[in-house]
Amino acid sequence: MTTTETESGTATPPAGEELLKVTGLKKHFPIRQGLLQRQSGAVQAVDGLDFTVTKGETFSLVGESGCGKTTTGRLLTRLLEPTEGTIIFEGRDISHLSEGKMRPLRKDVQMIFQDPYGSLNPRHTVGKIVGAPFKLQHVKTEGGTKKAVQELLELVGLSPEHYNRYPHEFSGGQRQRIGIARTLALRPKLIVADEPVSALDVSIQAQVVNLLEDLQNEFDLTYVMIAHDLSVVRHVSDRVAVMYLGKIVEIADRVSLYEKPMHPYTLALLSAVPIPDTKRRGKQERIRLQGDVPSPINPPPACRFHTRCWKAQDICKTVEPPLLQIAPGHQTACHFPENQPGAEAPRKATTS
């Protein structure tokens, strides 16, 4: 899919029906101390996100651990209550719906969890786990729940005979397939996949990724993919958003992002991706960022990346760069972006 540019200069998602729109999304976790548990601060896990997701696309969130990716996923599925901002799903504001009003929408918004074993109840059989959505949503299936569950198991590459087995009897890849089967039970429109392959062996990752792609094509699914493996993201994504310390610093289609990254942080992330080709490996310059990631309790003012950026100047410390479209379909939040048409060759940080 390609991203288009509007007359106002703002980036728009690929042509198609808008399924999800996020505006000014924030999640601050209060820090309480003392006998009276008074709030002394807050962890700014997510601090003002704006993006849209089009029906049928795969929109990926990437970034370092602790940047707010998983919190964003839990906000989108309303497993967490937003501090501020709006989440519009199919034209309806679901930002602050009560649990009762949100329950019917659970059929349309589902989540695949990172830990395939921790997300499955070890005391329940596979049949009971995968069949739980039908029971909770009071959905009647033709031929009964057992038949529906067995069909789901076949759909994700498992045997119907696994119906009466328990999670501990399966491998990691099989457990993730069970979790995917449960997610698909009610035919959701949006699936938030929180690092669905990070806990699996490399040999199994490709199988699960291919399964997710096949299911997307068959059922016209829309994915919000949360990941830190940039090789996997490049393979599965239509568009990619890069997060740093609770904010999105760059959004682009996968080709533009990987070939011409504009934000220095994105450039540093991509330089760390291993290259299997030994002839090309020696030509790659690794950008090593100086210092540690600042605390989300007290993030740096203005541009949050300026404490580690080799291009930082005074304006970066005083004025927060807005997320603007620099090239068609390519947004970045940087005062001095890389790879601009006609710009000078980018300066690098410490390399090795």
Rank of each mutant, 00 (worst) to 15 (best):
F305C: 03
H162F: 15
H162K: 08
G48C: 10
K101P: 13
L19E: 02
D50F: 04
S60E: 01
Q39E: 15
R123F: 14
G100E: 12
A206C: 08
G118Q: 06
T222F: 01
E218I: 00
A252Q: 02
K140C: 05
G291M: 05
L269C: 05
H162S: 14
Q313C: 09
T141S: 07
D238Q: 08
G291L: 06
Q37T: 10
G41E: 09
R254E: 10
S295C: 11
I191Q: 01
A45I: 13
H335Y: 06
L36I: 12
D50Y: 04
E320W: 02
A345M: 12
H235W: 13
T145V: 15
T12I: 14
R286D: 00
S98K: 14
V62M: 05
L35K: 13
A199F: 04
F51P: 01
R165D: 07
L105V: 06
Q325C: 08
I275Y: 10
Q37R: 15
V249A: 03
T351I: 13
P13H: 11
E64R: 06
T351F: 10
T86L: 10
D50G: 07
V293L: 13
S65G: 07
T12D: 13
S295P: 14
H235D: 09
G118P: 12
K69M: 02
N298R: 13
G16E: 06
V249L: 03
G85Y: 07
G66K: 09
E57K: 00
P328V: 11
T125I: 04
T278G: 02
L186D: 07
P301Q: 10
E142P: 00
A302T: 05
K189M: 02
L76C: 05
V208F: 02
S171I: 08
T71N: 07
L136F: 15
F134L: 15
H335R: 02
Q33K: 14
T77E: 00
T332Q: 05
P196K: 01
T77F: 00
D214N: 14
L152I: 05
V233A: 02
T54C: 14
Q44N: 14
V46L: 09
M102L: 15
P116H: 10
E344H: 11
A252H: 02
R347S: 12
G143M: 05
I88M: 15
T183D: 00
R106I: 03
P296K: 11
Y163S: 08
Y265E: 01
A302N: 08
V130A: 03
H96K: 15
T70H: 08
S8M: 11
T52M: 11
A148H: 11
Q290M: 12
P261G: 04
T10C: 14
M1E: 13
G100M: 13
N210H: 09
T351H: 11
T332I: 06
A227C: 01
C309N: 03
A181P: 11
P274Q: 00
M102D: 06
K146T: 12
E169C: 12
P167N: 13
T12H: 13
M111E: 01
S65P: 13
G291E: 08
K55L: 11
E7I: 12
Q205I: 08
A333P: 09
Q313Y: 07
H28R: 12
L75G: 06
S119Q: 06
I88P: 07
N164T: 13
G282F: 07
S159H: 09
G24H: 12
R32V: 14
C67W: 01
S203C: 07
